[in-house]
Design a protein around this nucleic acid. Structure first.
Length: 188
DNA sequence: CACCTGATTGCCT
DNA sequence: GGCAATCAGGTGA
């Protein structure tokens, strides 16, 4: 898929884009090491109208990249320890974004095991996903179209279903089923 | 400027 | 399944 098509797709409504993004790849090239995962779990976050969004209370130094053009990477530190990565969607200034919560290790698995210090649970959580891919605050504000962290179009395996439900760790707006998980056939 | 809480993880029981 | 680690942003005085 061409970069322009990806930009166009990212400019849609957050929940729609989030659902569409399942099955796509996130690839990174950090310090010469190439790694990649297939996205299987995401969450959509709105801008000013979403109480659960970091952008709810306006633009700040921390969430600045959320307000930029779709395709911008928004990385923030969670619990003072972990990094979490989001991909900005919608229109510039709208500040809606998709949190990458989990993926299936695909490229450079040995590198990811090294970064994680273990061979299992490499990217089944937002913090783990960033650790495995080598994503840090340095990548905040870069473009997923042509930056060090890239979004590559893909398709879900035949027969894969998509579950949706309330977002994890969120106490407000739990009525929005904006968490999407891809369930491959055979999986529980 | 002090206090509180979290879009989490991993180790312990 | 429970809980500590750890710190920056947000909130309120």
């Amino acid at each position: 898929m061409r970069s322009e098509d990806i930009r166009t797709l990212l400019s849609g409504d957050v929940p729609d884009v989030a659902r569409e993004m399942l099955g796509w790849w996130i690839t990174t090239k950090v310090s010469g090491q190439s790694t990649g995962i297939v996205i299987c779990e995401v969450e959509a976050y709105g801008g000013a109208e979403d109480p659960a969004s970091h952008a709810y209370r306006g633009r700040t130094t921390r969430n600045d990249s959320m307000f930029r053009e779709p395709g911008t990477l928004y990385v923030y530190r969670s619990y003072g320890v972990h990094w979490c990565a989001n991909i900005v969607t919608g229109r510039a200034g709208e500040a809606s974004a998709i949190l990458l919560r989990g993926g299936t290790p695909d490229v450079g698995i040995d590198t990811m095991e090294l970064r994680r210090g273990r061979a299992d649970h490499l990217a089944d959580g937002p913090g783990k996903l960033c650790a495995a891919l080598g994503i840090t605050g340095d990548d905040d504000g870069t473009s997923v179209i042509d930056g060090p962290v890239r979004l590559v179009a893909g398709v879900l395996q035949e027969g894969t279903t998509i579950d949706s439900g309330p977002r994890i760790g969120i106490t407000t707006a739990i009525d929005r089923p904006w968490r999407f998980v891809a369930r491959e056939p055979g999986m529980l």
